[in-house]
Design a protein around this nucleic acid. Structure first.
Length: 381
RNA sequence: GUGGGUGUAGUUCAGUGGUUAGAGCGCCAGAUUGUGGCUCUGGAAGUCGUGGGUUCAACUCCCAUCACCCACC
């Protein structure tokens, strides 16, 4: 049996939403799931014990960043990422493909791979599909990602096609270089913002038979409507017996819209990033606890939340910590946001299992104030 | 008491005759979607201690005065 396999438990009769279990060498993951991002082998400001308490089932780490520092050889000596991080639940490593995209000014890309001038000391390094696989196999995550080419928004169709085709060739090279049987390799769908390309990419990768499929190149600046259109087009082409992972999403509404279209896994830095800058997520919308209006607000961040932060601390106190630049302010907000997303996804799963996912989605929108928050579609519309 | 110094945004300071007096920090707000982010962007905020005077023109020069600081009696 493969290192990772997906077990479909229940399909929503009205939407594409599905509840399942991802079986991995380090235990099960109940899907749909939000995966906190721990780029540098840590979810910023959090310990692995706290992550477990928050209810995180699986965390991410990043190939590019860990290759630079401290290096995969050291992590391998430490017993792989699980030993190094003291986290015995599942881990997924991103391949570094996105860093090629986000650090584009520093790159030189050829068919072989990508030459970077790294951001730490400026020295040159090269990562191609084989290097990305070799690094990830030493890091030892349960799930590793193919090295892909992420097209930007906006993007000419011919450029998106070129990136997609290279992604497919690189996916084949990744598959060939992948040798550890206890790690699952996921391919990544690209295709820019063309439905035809997205469908072609999904079919091509499906035929290559990966253990799961990432959907890359979305949430890179495009309006939400366009992201949803792409998902609507490509999701029917995704194999039902494999997990589907929408990379880099996101906001609470995008997560649920993704679930509704059959996505099983998500990751996003948003929750922890905005937490460090004083914004938290609640069922009623965003709350910028850093703002002066909460100076004397002695309520918890969110009434009824079961997170450690909301159990013990007030908005006024957290605001004070944030304003004073105290690290604990960022920690308390991160704990809350991670717990919020864990609850959101657990609630979605529960709703799917009970055949009431559409009502769950409606209830979310009726409570969550979308005004001015994460509303990217308004900018371009 | 004598001599000297300093008074400019909430704060620390820049600005020595010429557009609408600036900066850092603070304050207020916005941004943040496979993390180069305790980051980035924007905004509000000053009767230039006070009162006179010189000058076409004064934060800037002169006089007085008040406050604070230093030194010496």
């Amino acid at each position: 049996m493969a290192a990772v396999h997906y077990e479909l438990i229940r399909q929503c009769p009205h939407t594409g939403a599905r509840a399942g279990i991802l079986h991995t060498p380090h235990g099960q993951v109940e899907t749909p799931v939000y995966m906190p991002v721990g780029t540098q082998a840590v979810v910023k400001a959090m310990t692995s014990r706290e992550m477990a308490e928050i209810g995180a089932q699986i965390v991410l780490a990043n190939t590019y960043h860990l290759h630079l520092r401290p290096g995969e050889d050291l992590i391998e000596k430490a017993g792989g990422l699980h030993g190094f991080m003291a986290w015995d639940k599942p881990i997924l490593t991103d391949s570094g493909g996105f860093q090629v995209f986000s650090l584009a000014r520093l790159r030189k890309m050829t068919e072989e791979g990508v030459r970077f001038r790294n951001h730490l000391d400026g020295s040159e390094l090269f990562i191609g599909p084989e290097e990305a696989m070799a690094i990830q196999q030493k890091l030892g995550a349960d799930i590793i990602m193919a090295f892909d080419v992420c097209s930007p928004w906006p993007c000419e169709e011919k450029d998106a096609k070129r990136d997609m085709e290279r992604t497919h060739r690189w996916a084949a090279r990744c598959k060939k270089a992948h040798s550890r049987p206890d790690q699952a390799l996921f391919g990544i769908v690209q295709g820019g913002f063309s439905k035809e390309l997205r469908i072609e990419s999904a079919r091509t990768l499906r035929d290559m038979d990966f253990s799961g499929y990432g959907i890359g190149g979305l949430s890179v600046g495009e309006p939400k409507d366009i992201m949803y259109e792409m998902l609507d087009a490509l999701m029917p082409e995704m194999p039902a017996d494999k997990p589907r992972y929408l990379m880099g999403v996101g906001t609470p509404d995008c997560l649920l819209e993704g679930v509704a279209r059959g996505v099983d896994m998500f990751d996003c830095v948003l929750a922890t990033r905005i937490a460090r800058n004083g914004t938290v997520l609640t069922g009623e919308g965003r709350l910028v606890v850093r703002n002066a209006t909460y100076r004397e607000d002695f309520r918890p961040l969110e009434e009824g939340c079961d997170c450690e932060t909301c159990q013990h601390y007030t908005r006024a106190y957290i605001r004070h910590l944030l304003k004073a630049g105290e690290i604990t302010g960022a920690r308390l907000c991160s704990i809350h946001n991670l717990r919020y997303l864990a609850r959101l996804m657990a609630g979605a799963r529960e709703a799917i299992l009970n055949d009431r996912f559409p009502a769950y989605l409606n209830d979310f929108y009726s409570r969550f104030d979308m005004r001015g928050a994460f509303n990217r579609s308004e900018e371009t519309a």
